[in-house]
Design a binder for these strands. Structure first.
Lengths: 359, 359
DNA sequence: CCATGCGGGTCAAAAATTGTCCCAAATGGA
DNA sequence: TCCATTTGGGACAATTTTTGACCCGCATGG
């Protein structure tokens, strides 16, 4: 605690004296993160993924190379051992330098949440930011997963998938754990399915799991029929015993299209004010439910039963969806933990300052 | 201790990731130091004293102004309250960032000294560096001055005068202390005389002092005569009871000229290899005494009696003189504490690496 | 009161950065 | 084994930024 306090003082003085180090460290740290995740990677590919012009990136890479932080080969660039150490050791410093801790506290207070974590960057510009959100969320999750009663319910999506990868990478085992998908199958990509992620997490953690072999937008006829299937019914029953909920937050239009809604249906959905989506509910800017997807899985009335709800989403395009979900939870008198990125957090703060958070 | 350790780790990682902050912080810190000492000061005067081109300085000043670190008026620029706080709080960070602690350790080990302190900058280029050396030396001194038995012997010179100013500024009082000049009058400038500095320190500390009203280069006839003077004899006797010695280190040529030696005498002195001077002794590169100034004051055989000897000198031009003095002490089997600046310390290390420190 | 030194403005020259090529070599999937 | 692809590094003109060298009106302090 003392050390942290001192660090923040030093950082504050340093930033005051030399504010130009902030964008500098931001860039360099993003490069390290990218290399830590995707090495070996080439200069052009890196520029593409970081949404940065190639030549400036080259200048940065040159400095890092001379510092012995990265090694180059014909296959691309990788972090050296020292570079990995620097990357890992730098996280608290970068958080301080970029003011991420302050940002997280602002979001936490503004929206009345129990805990908020903010990672550096913008997931829309730099795909590696999603991985870092995943690691951050995984860190929170494992502390909850130690509970022998823990039953984890997960949804699908790219961000939740990143949490799964991060949990797998940690290699910690929770044999008593049970992992369940909170939704059925949605879209085509198998690695983003709730069932797939549940299975991945459970396998890595040495835990048990169930899959939910139902389509996500479900027709009324199938609804009754599938509920009578004993295996499905059992899985649904187990979901009601969940203690931890991990879910992503979607953009209304994207999710509607992924669920195969017609252009007309999408138009009507958006006309009704839908901004965000979470586990099947489309929410407007005030957090009101605009439309509920007919599907099997975690249900509205179950939400209060979870001990912890962890929402993960980032990128500047997710500001409105996240805002919708946070207001939805506020209406429900629930308080989820939020893991997001810098761009999204700044957007949330910007809006919170302009208007009353709860209208 | 923990905090320091962590700080150094963070700093190491930060410097690795963004080495360009080192010259940046070096410049900005020098500006803060100058403003802390000499405010209010104008842009051109500042550029002159810092030996920096005006336009780049202006760019730095612009940043610092926008950061609210300095305030401008028609009389010049000054530090704001926040700027003063940043300046004071930044010292340990700057020491780490510029590697001054490492440098000090290298000098300490290379020359077998008990303690070495290094301040940032080059006294030859930036006159404020002398003030910082003074503050550093004053910090060491006060810890020794708490000893009720303390008797402090000081020499003259610009650097020792800066120590006197710094001690005065601290405002701590040592009523039991006795301060004595280690040399007679030398040159014309009263504020650089050993007696003047002794009186200044003693007055500020509420201590007692004596003056030594004798010329420094003294003729053989006067030598006997003045020693018979009861007041002078008593002062000389008191000097033999000294427990702490504070002295500067001079360049041989400069000191010889200041003592009024003829051009011929100076030439012969330099031809005999004289590099440095300390309390009257001219020393060659190996630390051998080349010539002893006939004078009254602290004598060679007294040196081992001091509990602490503190040598203060800086600037790249003082490398050879300091080296000569350090080797002299090594021959005497004495180990002084050294306060110097970055430029001088790097010069010492450079030489120590090339040759064996003791031949 | 007035001369000195103050901050700030201006602008051409110089330096650094950036955009956009190219290339030989190594890679890795077929 | 081969060959399409991607790698890092070189080169260089276009562009932006920084630097040097002025000038000006004005507050300040002797």
């Amino acid at each position: 605690m003392v050390a942290e306090r001192l660090l923040s003082d030093w950082v504050a003085a340093e930033v005051q004296l030399a504010p130009e180090i902030v964008p500098l460290l931001r860039r360099r740290y993003a490069i390290l993160r990218a290399l830590a995740v995707a090495a070996p990677v080439g200069r052009r590919a890196l520029a593409e993924r970081l949404s940065v012009p190639e030549r400036p990136l080259r200048a940065d890479l040159e400095v890092l190379r001379q510092q012995g932080i990265l090694s180059v080969s014909a296959a691309g660039m990788s972090l050296t051992e020292g570079g990995k150490r620097a990357y890992l050791g730098l996280q608290p410093l970068v958080e301080q330098l970029l003011g991420l801790d302050v940002l997280a506290q602002q979001v936490r207070i503004s929206f009345g949440l129990p805990m908020v974590q903010v990672v550096s960057g913008d997931a829309d510009l730099d795909p590696f930011v999603i991985e870092e959100m995943g690691q951050s969320a995984a860190g929170l999750l494992v502390s909850w997963l130690r509970d022998p009663q823990a039953v984890l319910v997960v949804t699908g999506g790219t961000t939740v998938a990143a949490v799964g990868r991060a949990l797998t990478a940690r290699g910690e085992r929770f044999p008593h754990l049970r992992v369940l998908p909170g939704r059925g199958g949605l879209g085509e990509r198998v690695e983003l399915q709730a069932s797939t992620i549940a299975a991945q997490i459970a396998t890595a953690a040495g835990a048990s799991y169930r899959m939910l072999h139902v389509p996500d937008p479900i027709s009324p006829q199938l609804y009754e029929e599938l509920q009578r299937d004993p295996l499905i019914a059992d899985t649904l029953a187990q979901i009601t015993t969940g203690t931890l909920l991990l879910h992503g937050i979607g953009d209304a239009r994207t999710m509607a299209e992924r669920r195969g809604l017609s252009a007309e249906q999408v138009r009507s959905l958006l006309a009704s004010g839908a901004q965000g989506e979470a586990f099947g509910f489309y929410l407007d800017a005030n957090g009101r439910i605009v439309r509920e997807t007919p599907a099997l899985g975690v249900r509205l009335e179950q939400l209060p039963r979870f001990q912890h709800i962890l929402a993960v989403a980032g990128g500047s395009a997710k500001v409105a969806p996240v805002l919708a979900v946070l207001r939805f939870y506020h209406r429900m008198q629930l308080a989820p933990t939020l893991v997001t990125d810098e761009a999204c957090a700044r957007g949330l703060i910007h809006i919170a300052k302009e208007e009353q958070p709860w209208q």
